[in-house]
Design a protein around this nucleic acid. Structure first.
Lengths: 185, 185
DNA sequence: CCTCTATGTTTACAGTGTTTACTTTAACCG
DNA sequence: CGGTTAAAGTAAACACTGTAAACATAGAGG
């Protein structure tokens, strides 16, 4: 799933580009890399990239998917550590916002790729976890779906507004804003 | 406040640039214009822009402020038409999301300029309206501030997720998700 | 009227995404 | 094996971007 050490310069250019892209995006202070930057980082000519991605946007979409995987994993372990149930659900939300603050550039990229709603892609782990949680917590499944979208929206809104500096990126504030008793009683 | 017909080519280049920028951004299918595009649209050399803005980012920030004004106005009239109070508050939220869907590029620009939270700028009308509404609806003023941030976050989250195509941009869905009885009982 | 300052223009540079044409490398198969 | 073929890489070029430096031109004020 990443950077197999053998056959770097030849062989798996695609994976190498994604790895270099993630490294550039990760962490606070991460930046969205240019296509040429990534080619340089991997030691290849800019046009070589086009053998593996039709254009820059496709590369970005692939990086976004990679980011979604990371987020899903972090959420899954956080939910498990919290013991599942309502506590796990809450942990999921906190982790979402913290992930955004920890990897601003990556998080922005993940949600700026124009992901048409009806495309046949399988739902990412984060999304699957969300619906599973709400289905377990709500009786009515339709109401559960609405709850899922609302929970997603408030977490996403908090994350975005904090990233943009519209709301102080305070950890205690995250806690209060996401308090399930207050928002979803 | 816009495009005074006299003295176009000489005089108010700054306003002309902002007007051209807004026109490019407005509407669905709007796009973030390049500095050179705007210069062309106004009939001026690219570097002339630098007499009025230190760099592209400053221009974008000015456009973002312009967009916030537009949003604030729309929200104000919507709240007034709904008769104020709780109904007005709800109208404010709906208008927020609808504005985002009606002007995707502008909305994105408005919230991607890195607006450091502590800077001395006066709060925009949208923000002022928000706190006024929650102060009126909640007894405890501290609880009102939290409610304001939560309401903002959920509206912002819905808007962003719909813009990114993660959630269907359905008007009825907006209504259900923002239903105050369901979210803030 | 003459000067000075605000506001433009020209030219140039480094960087970007992308196309086209060319070269190498590896794999396949008779 | 050995030769052909397709995959994967390179080089050069194009149109575009934001920006800097040096120069030109009003228009206003003393």
């Amino acid at each position: 799933m990443s950077t197999s050490p053998a056959a770097y310069h030849h062989g798996n250019l695609r994976d190498a580009l994604l790895a270099a892209g993630l490294q550039a995006l990760e962490g606070p202070g991460g930046k969205a890399p240019s296509l040429r930057e990534l080619a340089r980082a991997v030691g290849v000519s800019p046009t070589a990239v086009y053998r593996h991605f039709p254009d820059k946007h496709a590369l970005d979409k692939a990086l976004a998917r990679e980011g979604l995987k990371l987020l899903g994993n972090e959420q899954a372990v956080a939910a498990k550590e919290a013991g599942g149930g309502a506590a796990g659900f809450a942990a999921t939300g906190r982790t979402y916002v913290r992930f955004a603050l920890a990897h601003p550039a990556l998080f922005r990229l993940m949600f700026t790729q124009g992901h048409p709603v009806g495309d046949g892609e399988a739902p990412d782990e984060a999304r699957a976890l969300l619906t599973a949680n709400t289905q377990a917590l709500a009786s009515d499944p339709e109401r559960a779906e609405l709850l899922a979208l609302q929970a997603w929206s408030i977490a996403h809104g908090i994350a975005m507004l904090m990233l943009d500096g519209r709301i102080p990126a305070d950890d205690a504030l995250i806690e209060r804003m996401l308090d399930t008793k207050s928002v979803f009683p």
